[in-house]
Design a binder for these strands. Sequence first.
DNA 1: ACAGTAAGGATTGTTCAACAATTCCACAAG
DNA 2: CTTGTGGAATTGTTGAACAATCCTTACTGT
Lengths: 247, 247
Amino acid sequence: MTGTIVAVVIEDRDVPGLEADRGLVSRKSTAERVAGVLRKRIAEGFFLPGGRLSEQDIGNALGVSRNTLREAFRLLTHERLLAHELNRGVFVRIPSVEDVVDIYRVRKIIECAAVRGVTAKPASFPKIREKVEIGDEAARTGNWKDLGTANVWFHQELAALSGSERVNELVSRLIAELRLVFHIMAEPRRFHERYLPRNHEILDRVEAGDGLGAEQLLMKYLEDAEEQLVGAYAERAAAARAAIAVE
Amino acid sequence: MTGTIVAVVIEDRDVPGLEADRGLVSRKSTAERVAGVLRKRIAEGFFLPGGRLSEQDIGNALGVSRNTLREAFRLLTHERLLAHELNRGVFVRIPSVEDVVDIYRVRKIIECAAVRGVTAKPASFPKIREKVEIGDEAARTGNWKDLGTANVWFHQELAALSGSERVNELVSRLIAELRLVFHIMAEPRRFHERYLPRNHEILDRVEAGDGLGAEQLLMKYLEDAEEQLVGAYAERAAAARAAIAVE
DNA sequence: ACAGTAAGGATTGTTCAACAATTCCACAAG
DNA sequence: CTTGTGGAATTGTTGAACAATCCTTACTGT
């Protein structure tokens, strides 16, 4: 028995650094691939918030059985991208204003904690800087869609400073949910553009090793964004829901 | 079209305060009920970490079809309670040491932020106090299982101070995952007992309105618990995995 | 004795068809 | 305008079937 334990431990340490590639090797089930397709479609707005996803139609279109498709629906429901109503089907979720408030509440906790944790020594963070510059470039060329995406990535990189797998996953989900909000707002330009200079300020503080300073800026940033979003969102969300009721 | 919007809005405000009861009305699907049963069984250790959950056996035992059972498995896999290996089945997850470290990393961020947010004015928090006292009582009567449960609830109440639905859900999951760890450790007494006085200290600070003080205590608490857990856990987890390999 | 392998049995992955349960919609009745 | 009341459409769930994969075991050759 003890011999087998040793064998396992050895196997763990035999080829260090290779374990990270396991995700690439492990094949995914059909349901997960289908979920991936739908997730992407939802993110890019092909399926709009409030819309119903018919088992039959999508099953036929994608060439998978209803059972497999339902497994995919479960996955996305758990990510809060779809809402499952018993005997009625699944719908692309319409986040409520309370959802938006809660999302920002969690973002403040998570992102600020991540930023606060940077050491007191100056250092370079190329990945974060990259996202900021992608945002600048997108704004310069007027590519508003990319601007929104870059902004999202910027915040994901900030959260990644925490070094926690679970935090990364959580933030990914929060941001996927926020995408639904943006689809209802449908004004990426006016919303994202004004935050570009603040991205730079935050990055500067981070690279200067001033975690507390960066945290203060980020907190204000998130408070402002939330306020702006909540103010305009309430009526839009109601209108979106009403549009469904009409249709 | 605008007219219909008004109609919806009116309907929304017509019977205020009733929407909250929607969750009670909505029945749950079979898959969700099955997931609930399995979740409970896993929490109480009926299915031990590393054990495989046979589709056929459990399906027969619970009287549901394989398809429905698989939907339930998906749910629990997403909660990190089960691990799904393609063509091999689902297993009760054995958290790695890295998982434990990451869980505590997130707990520090979340719970500390929640506690830090309490106002500077003294107030009473009966729900938190209740959990602390349940823990005391369990320790006095030597009911070690309840002691662990009470301790878990205490921390859930602390996190609930954040007032965020998403934080509550996240913490619930983290703690469900930690239960797997405790099942492998299998020493609820020695682990939890020593933290009882610290529960009181933290509660005192919270009720005194000293959020920052409570945060410091809680941080130290979590650091100590993590250290103690990680130190003893590595070999146990390896042994558990090896036991599977042998069996 | 031992690594490699080939056959088989068992389990999961996926699909399909069927039926029950529920919701939706239109229309009639009060 | 509200309140039943049908039938059509959709989802919920099951059971069977087959393919794909994994695990065990026995066999082979060295």
